[in-house]
Write a protein that binds this DNA or RNA. Sequence first.
DNA 1: GATCGTCTCCCCCGCCCGGGGGAGGCCCGT
DNA 2: ACGGGCCTCCCCCGGGCGGGGGAGACGATC
Lengths: 220, 220
Amino acid sequence: MPVTVLLVDDEPLVRAGLRAVLEAQSDIEVVGEAADGAAVIPLVRQLRPDVVAMDVRMPLLDGIEATRAVLRTVDEPPKILVVTTFENDEYVYEALRAGADGFLLKRARPAEIVHAVRLVAEGESLLFPASVRQLAARYGEGDGNRAARAALERARLTEREAEVLRLMTRGLSNAEIADRLFVGTETVKSHVSAVLAKLGARDRTQAVIAAYESGFVAPG
Amino acid sequence: MPVTVLLVDDEPLVRAGLRAVLEAQSDIEVVGEAADGAAVIPLVRQLRPDVVAMDVRMPLLDGIEATRAVLRTVDEPPKILVVTTFENDEYVYEALRAGADGFLLKRARPAEIVHAVRLVAEGESLLFPASVRQLAARYGEGDGNRAARAALERARLTEREAEVLRLMTRGLSNAEIADRLFVGTETVKSHVSAVLAKLGARDRTQAVIAAYESGFVAPG
DNA sequence: GATCGTCTCCCCCGCCCGGGGGAGGCCCGT
DNA sequence: ACGGGCCTCCCCCGGGCGGGGGAGACGATC
């Protein structure tokens, strides 16, 4: 019983990339594609996918409105995985509040993408650990705390990796982090690489940005 | 509606001097004094000053930790003006990066002290709250006042530099910034170097951190 | 016992980054 | 006309960074 996925993105290249990555898995099947959120509802009704990989920015109907529309009008709605580029995630939390089950960076490694699809298909909420704090803040005192804790338990950054990321957000170099943690620089490099991969960041600067944008660290 | 100021310095003489200078202004009111950073937080909560004139070197809790503590634990924190004896004080950099809003030399002329207080009180100061240590060091043994003033002037980012910094905070590489701005990578490198120097940042990661910490860019 | 995840450390390698110094063109204000 | 700031581009150069791959030790879990 494979996981069925509907791809919604205005860029054909992105759809092709997601399809290639996901179709390579024997337990995942891409059952359809859409170029805009406006086309999602009929496709969802027709194909009844387990997961909708939803882009945020689309010309006609963006991912936020499309997510709301699907969840309001479809019985037994699919899980919605918000797909976003790194720079334009200001709408991600709106989408999550609209009912999306997780979000994913486009530049994530294939294994991460596959992992994300499987997780949301299983009903788990998928959030990058860095987003937990911000999520809790935006959801207030409601059941958001529960979701935040749940996400925290499935935190994909290990304890050590989180500590390394925290020191990265202090502007420390690998050598300085190594001194601070009493380990070798090679060890720090391993952790940094793991952090970059998990956050979908290309370099430490992007990782620090992700940390700020997600609320992993707060300014001031 | 006068600007209210809290003085924090371990030397009574300095506090008296600052009080005399500031109280001479009809629009500035010194509402309290503290002899150490350890006493700052309750006083800030009680007096709610607009500006805290904070010495860097203090016996119990130095200006760096005190600045961090205030910004982290107080709602609507005051502006923090770092006061120091030496323009090349190593701790100035850390204090500014901790979130301080400005930098002032004790030997500055009264008019400049007043000006500095008014500037940070207005919040929208032209100062970029970052290190002036390197800039001050360049002026070396020159007159302290001029060194400080020049440093403050030089700490202002040009329009182009601000644009480059903004793109840096989006995670772009030098080559990507060059493409975005239709200039050569060497030009971008020049701007980046200028930004790093003015912010006292060692690399682009620290510059991005400074941008977030200072409110140059806001997360979310 | 076997497997998995984590933490630790090592190698090689390419390359972007940042420092230092220099230079020409442009507009501006004195 | 001259100087100053700003933007633009160039050179050389070292070093930190990040990718890729591998490996040993440890504890938890099955």
